[in-house]
Amino acid sequence: MENNLVIETVDLHKEYKRDEFQVIALQNANLQIHKGEFVALMGPSGSGKSTLLYLIAAIDRPSQGRVRVLGQDLQQLSDKEIAHWRNEHVGFVFQTFNLIPVLTARENVELPLLLTNLSKKERIEHAETALKLVALSDRMTHYPRQLSGGQEQRVAIARAIVTDPALILADEPTGDLDAHSAQEVLTILTKLNQEHGKTVVMVTHDPHAARYASKIRYLEKGELLPEGSPPPA
C-alpha cells in the first residue's frame, strides 16, 4: 500500500507575506493520493487549491511541512534538480493553456523533450504520438492563434504528457472553455487516468467536471477538509 502512494503531504503549511499582512494560504494539509487515482480539488476562491497544487508540483516551496511525490522528498532537491525532476515526472496543465505563441502545436509539445536525451527524430515521433492522443494529428503545424480554446488546451495536455510523466496536475483546466470543449478535455484526462494509468489531480470549480474524478477533496480557508466531508457551504 505504502509504495502505491504518489502524493503525500505532511502538515503542509504555506503563508504569503503581503505588505504587513500574512496570508495563510494553506495550513496543516495532510493529503494522500494513490497511484491511479483521479482526484478533484474543490473549494471556494482563495481556499488554497492552487497553492496546494503548486506545492505538489514543486513550483513553490512550503513554509512548513513536507511534500513527498513519487517517493521523492521535494525539500531535499535544489532548484535545478527540481526543474529536472518536474520535467521528468509531472505534467502541468494551466487554466489559460500557456502555449508559446511563436511555436507550432508540435513544437510546443516537443519543448519538454528538449531537456531529454532524445534525438530530433524521436522527439518529433513522441510529440506526434502525444498530439494523436488528444486527437489533433491534423493540427501539428498550426500556431496557437490558429486553434480554438479547446484545441489549445488539448495541445497543452499533449505537452504535459509527452515526457510520459506518472503524475498530471491540472489547475482549472476547463475554466476557460465552453461546455463542449470542457467535456473533450475531461474525457482526455479520464482516458489518461484509466487507460494510461496516470495519476491525475485536478483543481476545479465546476461540480460537473468534478464528477469525472474518482474522488473529490474539499478545501476551505486554507484547510483541507477530511476525506468524505460534505462540500463547504
Binding site: H84, R86, F92, I100, P112, L115, R159
Partner: peptide, 9 residues
C-alpha cells in the same frame, strides 16, 4: 513561467 514549469532552468 511556463518554460520554467516545463523544466527549463
Amino acid at each position: 513561467g511556463t518554460l520554467r514549469v516545463l523544466g527549463f532552468s
